[in-house]
């Protein structure tokens, strides 16, 4: 196919197709600060301004089918710097939401599916999770002045309930120690749920509102069932 064949007749596009999206995308003055700010601009020809522009022109399908919305890390720098207050992160998420679920890039799709099914992105069984937490607690207890450190799982009426990022019970278990030790030193009354403890919510990244709601609902349920007073939801 030659370049000319690929030419799109602009006035055949439905420019109104995304006009109901309330993200101010039509107000772009193409200043480019979003693309300059973006840490992943240039990867596979992606830049945020391009996506904003495509949506403004009504090139919805092409945006949904492209890899670009999935290159974005959703860090939000583009949106924070946009002089026209265009909600660029929301646009990216909206485009992601329009992709068929089984077309969502592998790891996100699989992780979310697993989380919905098993309560965490890793599919880690309850026993293994508890074993890891207790193992970490024992390691802390070996350190001077933390001799009586323990982790209390599913404790009722605790002051703080904390969720866990799956990475912390997988490859980064040492990172759990820092804040647990702070809890201990502060004499904090805290607990961790034994199931549905996943702190990440990949519904955010795949644009799946339903999944997001379900994952959040689980945390809300914990708060109610365990009667915890405060929620610490690190992500």
């Amino acid at each position: 196919m030659t370049e000319a064949d690929k030419r799109v007749n602009l006035d055949q596009l439905d420019h109104d197709s995304c006009r109901s999206w309330d993200y101010s995308q039509d107000f772009c003055v193409t200043c480019g600060i979003c693309s300059s700010m973006c840490p992943v601009s240039g990867i596979d020809d992606f830049d945020p301004r391009k996506l904003v522009r495509m949506i403004s022109l009504g090139m919805e399908n092409e945006a949904v089918d492209s890899r670009w919305p999935w290159i974005c890390t959703m860090c939000g720098k583009c949106e924070a710097s946009c002089p026209m207050e265009i909600k660029i992160s929301s646009i990216v998420r909206k485009i992601r939401s329009l992709r068929e679920r089984d077309e969502v890039p592998g790891i996100l799709h699989k992780g979310l599916e697993t989380a919905l099914k098993t309560g965490n992105n890793l599919g880690l069984p309850k026993e293994d999770f508890e074993f890891i937490l207790e193992d970490v607690a024992e390691e802390i207890a070996e350190e001077p002045s933390f001799e009586n450190f323990t982790v209390e799982i599913d404790k009722k009426g605790a002051n703080i309930l904390t969720t866990i990022h799956n990475k912390l019970v997988n490859t980064h278990t040492d990172d759990l120690k820092h804040w647990w030790k702070i809890f201990h030193a502060a004499g904090e009354d805290w607990t961790v749920p034994s199931e549905n403890w996943e702190g990440t919510n990949w519904g955010l990244f795949t644009g799946d509102d339903e999944a997001m709601k379900k994952m959040s609902g689980r945390i809300v349920d914990h708060m109610k069932n365990l009667g915890a007073k405060n929620l610490l939801w690190p992500e």
Partner: peptide, 22 residues
Amino acid sequence: RSIPGDILISDNDCPQITFFDS
């Protein structure tokens, strides 16, 4: 034709600009 993003400081007090080259 692009407004730069962050400016950081490099050696010798030289500002380093990141910008999108269209």
